[in-house]
């Protein structure tokens, strides 16, 4: 068993704000991340797949296929968008990792595939990274 990791990048705006909190609480908890107009990041996401390489091609998954699935599941939904428009949860790095793992699992379900999603790591900035191990991968 081995792992292959693809790194993808996207640019998006967001604002940390919860509709379950008062304005004062949002301000206290999220600080400058809660400013009304929002702000943005150059996000980087590491998508790690696991499985066995095809004995003939040597590929765990052909790159075009892999890139098309990641584009469909993730990049096309977030690049140059406001994350608050596309994610229901508060758009913290923690929640983004959880949501992206769910989206990517739909493209790499592992059932009739020789590969499945192993982990997703989201870099909000070079200093903040959020990692989630795929529950499907953990269960096996």
């Amino acid at each position: 068993m081995m792992r292959l990791t693809r790194v993808v990048r996207f640019e998006a705006a967001h604002r940390l704000v919860s509709d379950q909190l008062s304005d004062a609480e949002n301000e206290r908890i999220y600080g400058k991340c809660c400013r009304p107009g929002g702000h943005g990041h150059n996000y980087e996401v590491e998508v790690t797949l696991t499985g066995e390489p095809d004995p003939v091609s040597g590929f765990l998954m052909p790159r075009e296929e892999m890139d098309a699935r990641i584009e469909r599941a993730l990049v096309s939904r977030v690049d140059h968008r406001n994350l608050n428009d596309v994610v229901d949860e508060v758009t913290t790095g923690e929640n983004l990792a959880i949501v992206f793992e769910r989206w990517l699992t739909a493209e790499f379900p592992g059932a009739n595939d020789n590969v499945r999603l192993h982990a997703v790591r989201v870099y909000e900035t070079a200093r903040n990274q959020f990692e989630i191990l795929s529950p499907a991968s953990q269960a096996r």
């Binding site: 081995m2 792992r3 292959l4 990791t5 693809r6 790194v7 993808v8 765990l60 790159r63």
Partner: peptide
């Protein structure tokens, strides 16, 4: 490259 790696544990 800086956007692709393979690993074995």
């Amino acid at each position: 490259s800086d956007d692709l790696f393979a690993e074995v544990e």
